[in-house]
Structures are given as structure tokens and as C-alpha cells.
Write a protein that binds this DNA or RNA. Structure first.
Lengths: 204, 204
DNA sequence: GGAGGGATTGGCCGAACGGCCAATAGCCAC
DNA sequence: GTGGCTATTGGCCGTTCGGCCAATCCCTCC
């Protein structure tokens, strides 16, 4: 018997999942949560075999929830669910100890197969996500520092301000911005920010 | 009997909806579509009483689908479903003839009530959406032209290029950009683009 | 028919931006 | 340990940006 905890903020989607999963004789949805902290306490109560975790949650987001879950239950087997295909999110999730990462768009059989795989301790990645990861690899990698700078560009800071905020020279800030423009193939910081949102580096 | 057409690109969510709706004796889900053109042809086939239409669809988006549906079936009663609360989307939807607009986060009873209301030809707006609309009213309204300019800022165009693209002077383009910065409370075009994404004026 | 708001344009100016070239130091992987 | 990548900094320069002030035309709402 595979005991499952559902974590998603959309009640209807949870119903759909519960319904789909309920059709499998060896699946049992033992609890449902609509946010990260509820997920944590329910996990303590039920110690599920598999946790289906939405990436975007209100308050504490999916990745953060994943980190806390893994910190407390290092053996927790987590399958991330997502609506978008942001390569950086996927990487973060795996780094934080997720076992699987699949799109909500997948059909029933794929979903079921992914859950079984994760329950066995195997990895599971849906095809669209794998493709997004491959695409991201082709493009140049954006460094952590650059993502940090991108976050400041988003807030309308000038190069000088970015330098001050990061404790570096305006020159260096400029260099980071230039690197961002190049890697994101953007003409100016406005387009860089747009690309950030398009790629999921920045979140609304 | 209320005959319903479901339009959403997430199979699991559709399952959930079908499940929730199936519990009501006077509801019948007569068809499901995962994109706009399928929705159109299914609508021709089944002439449903109510259409549940997701705002974000692959290819032709929800609003566009709505427009085509209304153009062909002017009596169509459409209830929009959304994951985000972008005030501009809501306005566009109502202008395009939607009868209702609710968040996917709503609980079962609210959803059912909204569908019954729309089936009777009444409007239905979920609380969170109404709040978003109210918030948007407090802020200054962004004109169509400005949204157009925002779309160009996103693509990294300079004021001069924007002028050329819109057939206006650089001066005027500058004026539009300045208006955007003011209304979006942004320090520069990069932040303006970010605010555009945050508000749902721009879509990834 | 008048009021209000959006779209349009003008000039001026200091600050910020982005491009190009080059160099040093630190860290990870092979 | 050596190559490759990132982070850091420097100078120089033409272009672009954003702010401030003011004016006209057109459409819609009352």
C-alpha cells in the first residue's frame, strides 16, 4: 500500500488527484494540505510514503516546503507537481532532495507511473520537464550572483545602487548586468527582466 | 438539467471538476476540451448551457477563445476560471462577454453556486477576484496605448524604436513611458516590466 | 455643449546606461 | 596542478534615459 499526502492550494485539483489516485487499489491518499505548514504537520501525523507537492504554494513556496520536509524527514519521498517548466525550479527541487518532478499536464498513466517510481525510491521526470531542462542546458548558465542582480534590476535599482547593496563597485555591478544581457540575449535591463519572468528566474 | 462544457488544459483538474460537478443531480458535463479550437468545435456539437473556460490555454488563450465563442454563439453563457487575479484579464473577459469569473481556489459550494448563477444568466464573481478588481480601481488605470508600449519595453526597444514602431515621435513614446513609470510606480523601464508581470499585464 | 482624459509633440539637461578592452584573484573539476 | 569559470575592478565614450514645463487635438461622458 502506498500512502500519499497531497499538497496543493487548488481544492478542485486535489479532488481530481484524489479521484485519479483512488482508482488504484494500492494507493491511499491519507491527507491533503493546501499550504506548506499544514503539509509539515500532516506529514508528522501520517508519515506518508509519497508526498505530492505543488511547486507554487501560498506563503511558504513549494521548494521551501520541500527543504523543511527533507530537513525533518530525510527519508521523505517527494514528487513535485508544477504548472510551468522553469528549469531553475527543477534544479532547485532536485538539489533540495525531490525524487520526481512532473507537470500537471501529464495524463493519468504517467502520473500513476511517476508515483510508483517515487514510492520505490526511483527518480521520475515528465517529458516536458526533461525537455525544458535540456533546453536550459543549451543556453548559458546564469550564475547565482547574476540571478541576485536580476532580482535587483527588477526592483529598478541603478548600477550604482546595486553595487552598494551588494557591497561591490558600480563597475562590477555593470559587469554582472552586461553578463545578464548577454546570457539572456536582452537589449537592455527591461528586456532582461522580461526574460527572467519568461524563464521562471523571476516569479510574479 | 444544466449541460456543461469544460475547457482546461490540465487533465487532472478536469477530472476534479467533472467529479465535483457529477455529484450534482442537475449537472451534466457533456464534453471536455483542452484548447480553444477544440472547445469551439465541441460547442458546435453539443450547444452546452454553460461553458467553464480556463483563462490560460495553450495556443489561443482563454480570452480569445471567449471572443470566438461569443461571436458564434452570442447566447453562450461562459464562466471563466483562473489561477491568478489579474484585474486587466477580468475586465477583458467581461468586455468580451463572460458572465462569470472565478478563481480555481474556490471551494466546491462556491463553484456550484457560480455555475447555477451563470446558467440562470446571472453574473458570478468570486471574492478574491472582486477584491483584485477593487484594488486595481484604486490604482490608476493603464491605457491601451500604455499597455502596448509596455509590451515593447519588454522586448528591449528604445524610445526611438518604440516611436518608429508605433508611428509616433520619440517624444511621445517617452511620454508614454513616463506615464507608465508613474502609474506603475516604477523607477525605470526594467521595474515597469517587472510590475507588468506582477500585475498580469504581461504574461510569461 | 462643455468638462475631463488620453494621445500627441516640443525643448533642455544631468544622470545612467551599455559597449569595448584588459587584468587579477578565488574556486571547482579533471 | 592546471584549465576553465566566476567575481571583481578599472577607464573611456557615445547613446539613451527620465524629469520638468507646456501646448494642441480628439473622443467620450455628463
Amino acid at each position: 500500500m502506498i500512502r500519499i499526502l497531497l499538497v496543493d492550494d487548488h481544492p478542485t485539483l486535489r479532488t481530481g488527484l484524489a479521484n485519479v489516485l483512488g482508482c488504484e487499489r494500492d494507493f491511499a491518499v491519507v491527507a491533503e494540505a493546501d499550504d506548506g505548514s499544514t503539509a509539515l504537520s500532516l506529514c508528522r501525523q501520517h508519515l506518508p510514503d509519497v508526498i505530492l507537492l505543488d511547486v507554487s504554494l501560498p506563503g511558504m513556496d513549494g521548494i521551501e516546503t520541500l527543504e523543511k520536509l527533507r530537513a525533518e524527514f530525510s527519508q521523505a519521498r517527494v514528487l513535485m507537481l508544477t504548472s510551468s517548466e522553469a528549469a531553475e525550479d527543477v534544479r532547485h527541487a532536485f538539489r533540495a532532495g525531490a525524487l520526481g518532478y512532473i507537470s500537471k499536464e501529464v495524463r493519468r498513466p504517467e502520473l500513476i507511473a511517476a508515483i510508483r517510481a517515487v514510492a520505490r525510491g526511483e527518480k521520475a521526470i515528465s517529458e516536458s520537464i526533461a525537455r525544458a531542462l535540456a533546453d536550459a542546458d543549451e543556453e548559458s548558465t546564469i550564475s547565482r550572483r547574476e540571478i541576485e542582480v536580476l532580482g535587483l534590476l527588477r526592483q529598478g535599482f541603478t548600477n550604482g545602487e546595486i553595487g552598494r547593496l551588494l557591497g561591490i563597485t558600480e563597475r562590477t555591478a555593470k559587469a554582472h548586468v552586461a553578463a545578464l544581457l548577454l546570457k539572456l540575449n536582452a537589449a537592455d535591463r527591461a528586456e532582461a527582466v522580461a526574460r527572467g519572468f519568461e524563464r521562471g528566474l523571476l516569479k510574479p
